[in-house]
């Protein structure tokens, strides 16, 4: 669509495209079988049985993997309920199921997500690169704002750290924790004209925490022979020191996301003079 197209035409086109999408979704959902009519065995993957490489290899060696007698859902292992604070050496060990999926079973996706955020921050900083000019605002923030942001920053920072350190126990984790910390730093920017975070520190922090994530993954590769595999004991469910490497990874993610989002805010807020010639 060209620049000189009237605004009404643009809006009508956009609305009709959205309507087509909505109609498509409506028709698609209408075809979807109702919840009660669904055979769970059909919808949930039947192969979600042999999850671990070790178990599968053992069963393969025993000739059981392809045998016809095996039921789709495992019945050979008796079902034991998981008790908070008592159950030990579970498959994953995180009390927060979302965390164990996000960091353990699909940890590679999370590494990718962290990289996406890193690249977005890097791209923003690259585009706004140049010699820093002094910021001049028309109004100085009031004393209340200045003192208030400084006090609340400590609390927000502590809360952010709490969120990512307890990622495997309570809702939350590295991404929310880092975002909370960055919003505290945004408060510091608003509280004082010409506030400057330590640029070198942010850069080093960001790099080191990102490298820590990859190094944890590589440790898995060299100790358990699989990239991003859990190489620590899973402990008792509900303890702070449990769930293996999830805690370590969430600390790395939290620090990285916090540093990155602060860097984005910083590079957006600072005025620069472009250096191309």
């Amino acid at each position: 669509m060209r620049n000189d197209t009237p605004a009404l035409v643009k809006r009508i086109t956009a609305l009709s495209l959205i309507t087509i999408l909505l109609i498509g979704f409506f028709l698609a959902f209408k075809e979807m079988p109702k919840g009660s009519a669904v055979n769970v065995n059909q919808r949930v993957s039947r192969l979600y049985v042999m999850k671990n490489v070790e178990t599968a290899t053992k069963m393969m060696e025993n000739g059981k993997f392809f045998a016809k007698g095996i039921k789709p859902l495992r019945t050979d292992v008796p079902y034991t309920p998981i008790t908070f604070g008592k159950s030990k050496n579970l498959e994953d060990g995180a009390a927060n199921v979302v965390t164990s999926i996000v960091v353990d079973y699909r940890g590679f996706d999370t590494l990718g997500e962290v990289t996406v955020l890193f690249l977005a921050a890097t791209g923003v900083a690259m585009l706004l690169f140049g010699k820093e000019k002094k910021r001049k605002n028309k109004t100085e923030p009031s004393l209340i704002m200045y003192v208030g942001t400084r006090i609340s920053f400590a609390i927000i920072f502590l809360f952010g750290i709490y969120i990512f350190v307890h990622g495997h126990l309570t809702p939350g984790g590295g991404f929310p924790g880092g975002a909370v910390i960055a919003s505290g730093i945004l408060g510091l920017f608003l509280g004082k004209n010409g506030y400057k975070p330590n640029h070198l520190g942010l850069k080093v922090f960001e790099s080191l925490s990102g490298m820590a994530f990859v190094i944890i993954g590589l440790t898995g590769l060299f100790s358990v022979h699989s990239f991003l595999a859990n190489f620590l004991p899973t402990g008792v469910i509900g303890d702070l020191y449990s769930a293996g490497f999830i805690g370590l990874i969430y600390i790395a993610i939290g620090m990285k996301v916090g540093a990155e989002l602060s860097a984005v805010v910083n590079s957006m807020i600072v005025d620069v003079e472009e250096e191309w010639s």
């Binding site: 809702p171 984790g173 991404f175 929310p176 960055a182 919003s183």
Partner: peptide, 17 residues
């Protein structure tokens, strides 16, 4: 957890940016 992230990033940071 998604709610916390959405509130911190969607409502807080991205609006400010």
């Amino acid at each position: 957890d998604v709610a916390i992230t959405e509130a911190a990033i969607g409502a807080g940071l991205s609006t400010a940016i």
